[in-house]
């Protein structure tokens, strides 16, 4: 079943097009990842799908009654706003205490309800965002670089959780990611974006496409460069790093 269809959409930011004639769709149960360099319009695409940005041209069609769970790239909570995890889960709809506790337990952080949002670690914070997004039993879960600020073990666990979520809820997952190694493992379909759709398809297929190589460099060098860029401050070379270094 088709959840969202975007046809020939052009989105402008104060005159200049951020995305040009993008055609995109996602079906029930699919995991789709959007890849692209900074400023390539990844977040713009997600925000368009949510309905936060108007189309300059083209059309956006959503399945009737489509429920979207959204995990933003970062959520800045003003220090003047006192907000516990429990209260955050009740936004915008109030939920029962047992439902909240079950949602927290479900993402692996039981008993955290009373904590202020400002006092959470990066990993806990992302899990709370995920728990809230899952509360509405979404048909489509949208994650905008949800693992930013997590270390490698943290983001691996997070993506493992996403796979479980799909199995459990049967929802589609649309995510933006920089982490190529994760993308290659976890996605059904990859969309490569750079102001327009460069290429799309199964991960293995995209990885060999010339458009992809033009964007990310070819082979080891490209993957490694991007990977290194993400983990500047890592002091040891862990197994995953080796694996990438040796990737053909």
């Amino acid at each position: 079943m088709r959840l969202i269809t975007l046809q020939n959409a052009t989105i402008r930011h104060s005159g200049t097009p951020a995305l040009e004639s993008v055609t995109f769709h996602i079906d029930r149960g699919e995991i789709v990842t959007i890849l692209g360099p900074n400023g390539s319009g990844k977040s713009t695409l997600l925000r368009t799908l949510i309905g936060a940005l108007p189309l300059s041209s083209g059309s956006l069609e959503k399945a009737p009654g489509l429920r979207i769970g959204y995990v933003p790239q970062k959520l800045h909570i003003d220090p003047t706003l006192p907000l516990t995890v429990r209260r955050f889960l009740s936004l915008p709809k109030r939920i029962r205490d047992d439902v909240a506790e079950a949602a927290l337990a479900d993402v692996g952080i039981p008993g955290l309800g009373h904590r202020p949002m400002a006092g959470l670690s990066g990993g806990q914070f992302q899990r709370v965002l995920l728990a809230r997004a899952l509360l509405t039993k979404p048909d489509l879960l949208i994650l905008d670089e949800a693992t930013q600020g997590l270390d490698q073990a943290g983001s691996a666990a997070f993506y493992q959780k996403i796979e479980n979520v799909r199995a459990q809820f049967g929802c589609a997952v649309l995510m933006v990611s920089h982490e190529l190694h994760v993308v290659m493992a976890a996605s059904d379909r990859v969309v490569c974006l750079n102001g327009h759709v460069c290429c799309e398809g199964a991960p293995a297929q995209v990885a060999t496409a010339p458009e992809y190589k033009a964007l990310f460099g070819s082979g080891t060098h490209g993957t490694l460069a991007l990977y290194r860029h993400e983990h500047d401050h890592s002091h040891e070379c862990d197994p995953a790093c080796d694996e990438h270094g040796n990737h053909p």
């Binding site: 925000r47 949510i50 309905g51 936060a52 979207i68 769970g69 959204y70 933003p72 959520l75 800045h76 909570i77 706003l81 907000l83 955050f88 936004l91 915008p92 709809k93 109030r94 509405t136 949208i142």
Partner: peptide, 21 residues
Amino acid sequence: WSSLLTATLNPELARASGISP
């Protein structure tokens, strides 16, 4: 109250919940 609070927290989060910031 609830819609205002959600929109205050994050406009996109509000959008995804069907609230117009």
